[in-house]
Each structure stands twice: as C-alpha cells, then as structure tokens.
Simulated assay, not measured.
Amino acid sequence: MATLDLSKSPETTGPLNFAGMTRGEIAGVLGEAFGLDEKKAKMRATQLWRWIYHYGQTDFSAMTDIAKEMRAGLAERFVVARPEVTERLVSVDGTRKYLIRLGPGVEVECVFIPDVGRAGALCVSSQVGCTLACTFCHTGTQKLVRNLTSAEIVNQVMAVKDDLEEWPSGKEDRRLSNIVFMGMGEPLYNLDNVAKAIDVISDGDGISLSRRRITVSTSGVVPEMHRLGEETAAMLAISLHATNDPLRNELVPINRKYPIAELMEACRNYPGVGNARRITFEYVMLKDVNDSDAEARELVRLLKGVPAKINLIPFNPWPGAPYECSSWERIEGFADILSRAGYASPIRTPRGRDIFAACGQLKSESVKKRASEARKERMGAV
C-alpha cells in the first residue's frame, strides 16, 4: 500500500523563490549561484533579508543598496513571490479569511482577526487538512494532504501583510501584532517547519513579531511539547475541551494516545512556564456535553498548580455538526466558577461566523478538488 510522505517538500518548478527562506538558506543559495565566499554571501543575504521581510519588496530592481549587476543576476535566477490568494472574504465584524493556493489542487485557509492581542491576530495553518478528527472541528473532517513547508507558513503571513498594506514591518501602529498557529492542522505534527517559520517571523530585522506574541496550539502531542518550548520559546495553548479521559477520548481522539494526566504533566514542565508565561487552555462550550457546573469545578481542580488562563469558546456551527453551542447564560455561569477560583476565563467572542472563519470552521477542498472549481460548479448549478 502506498503511504503519504509528509516530510517531502512539494515539487517546485521555475525560478527559486526567496520568500519564506531562512537567512542561512538565502546565504547558501547566493553563495552557490554567484560563487561568493561565506562572508560575502552572508552580507548579501542580510541585504536581501531586510528588503524581503522588512520592506516586503518583491522587485529586485528596487533593492537600491545592492549593485545593479547583482540585481540583474538575481532577477535572472530568482523571484520573490507570494502565493496566490484565490479568495478573500470579509466578515461584517472585520475578520478576513483568505483561501491561499500553494500548488495544483492544494489550498489552505488563514484568518486575520482585528482587535485581538495587541492589535490584531493572524490564525495560520500548518498542514493541509488534519489527522486528528476532533469531532467538534470542521477541519477534522478533511483528510490530511500534507505538511506545509516553513516557507508556505511564512508566506501566509506575508500575503496578509500585503493585503493589510503593512510594510515596512516594525511600525508602532501595526495592525498585525500576533500570530496564532490555530488554523488547519496539528502544528506539533509539523514541528520542524513550524519552528523554522517562527524563526523567520520573529527575526528583529524582518517581520519582527515577538515570540511572546506567537502562540502555538496543540491538541496534546505530548512528546513534542518540550521541544516546542525549547526551540521556539512560543506561547503554548492546549486544545483541552474536557476534564476526563472518556469524554476527551470522544472529543479529541488523540487523548487515547496521550491521556489527560500525561498532558498535564507536560504542561507543568513546559519550558519557561510561569505567571508571566501562562498556558492558555481552550475549552469549546458544547450544550449538555461539557458545560455543567460540575465540569467547571473539575477544570479548576485539573489546572491546580499550572499557571493558566482559560479561553471559553462558544461552539461555532458548521454543516452537519453533531453539537450545539451552550446557551450564553450557561457559558457565563461556567466562566463565573472559573473566575471565582482565580482564573482569567474570557469568553471568546465569535468572529467571522458569517464567512465560516471562526474557530473550528476552517476547511479547504484540497482533497477532492480546488475550492475555486467547486464554487464554479455550485454557481453553474444555480
């Protein structure tokens, strides 16, 4: 039986694209292409890095501190190109959802949410599809196609910065201040590429987003959690949703492999965890499933000794979903129990529901066909 090699990068054709590369990769490519020694290759890479990631420049001819002859040589051999945004939807609340084409038949979604974090947060994807099959999540109904490369993750950020007209980077009044790995896929099943992308996104000479404003959410891939903290210093979020193993086995099937006790031990040992670097526990509110007062009290008991905050997420419906959202009164009652126990427990305001951009609603149609083709078929059937 043929198996899918998720570690294999997608085949590329045409000129090599600098966008998404690390500093070391750019230096290596320049050294090989122009016969530069290590010192000169690093110098040229530093120049290119700033143009690509600080200024967002895609035209080599505009990179004025690089010699004209070098610029011409770069233009002959390379590009600085963004992925194609095949669809851009804007919600009534200002949320923007992007469908990004990465290659033939391969698309992912990412979502920009204004007024979240310091200014606005971008929810990026780390895989095309997902293997986890969480029963409340629309993405979980899409078969995994492959991991995204680090460049494909970075280019989601760059494409959105283009749309927000947020170049050069590092402006005090920036609209994009936070990155959350909460889109399609399980980031810790693609940790090498996620870590590499975080290195690029957080570099102070480029996009320059603080690692403390980058959050990686996991459903509980326990063996990779410590490495995530060691290698990235990113903030950690846990997709929890239940306080006992039988229910979490149903909602988040990976719990059968890494049960709650193991998950909580990994949280206590997460590098750098403390009151200044609390772990966020995400808890989707499902009517008559996990929203009782007893479960709120059990959540308090479970998190004892862990520097934590709890995001209560009203369930966002999608076609064929087997759950309903808890009533607002029930959610507030649940939150009150957590608050009285001393936990920050904000109720996440649903954003982008009208364009299926809310938490748990992302899904592309890469498995069967391009989403744009599917839309054309639906239009033709009207």
Rank of each mutant, 00 (worst) to 15 (best):
E298L: 12
V367D: 08
E76H: 07
A261I: 10
S219T: 05
S239Q: 02
F34Y: 13
R175D: 03
K171V: 07
D336S: 14
L247V: 08
A233G: 09
V306P: 05
G24T: 10
I355L: 12
M1S: 15
A266N: 03
I26A: 13
A341M: 11
R268P: 00
A75E: 11
S372Y: 05
R353T: 12
E76N: 12
T86K: 14
S208Y: 06
D192A: 12
S61N: 10
K39W: 12
E69K: 11
K8H: 11
D163L: 07
K42L: 13
I207R: 02
A81N: 12
T64L: 12
M379R: 15
E152K: 05
G105A: 06
L144E: 05
K309C: 13
S239I: 03
V160H: 06
A41G: 09
C137T: 01
P246G: 06
A119C: 00
A294W: 02
M235H: 12
M21T: 05
T149L: 06
D205C: 07
H226M: 07
P314F: 03
L312S: 03
E152Y: 04
M21L: 15
E265H: 10
V273P: 06
G274R: 08
F315D: 00
L176M: 12
I153G: 06
K363W: 07
P246S: 08
E107H: 11
R268S: 09
V92N: 13
V382G: 13
K196H: 13
R88Q: 15
K304P: 01
I113M: 15
D245W: 04
R101P: 02
E298K: 15
K161E: 04
V157D: 00
G105W: 09
G183W: 00
Y55W: 10
G140S: 10
A27F: 03
L16H: 13
A197H: 01
A308I: 04
C267G: 09
E250K: 12
R248L: 05
V111S: 02
G24C: 07
N275L: 11
A261C: 11
E282G: 02
A237F: 10
G120C: 09
A308S: 15
G185V: 04
R174C: 00
V157H: 01
E87M: 15
K369A: 14
A321M: 03
N275P: 02
P83G: 08
L6P: 07
G129F: 01
Y53D: 02
P307F: 08
K363D: 02
V194C: 03
G105L: 03
R348C: 05
E166H: 05
A19R: 12
S339T: 14
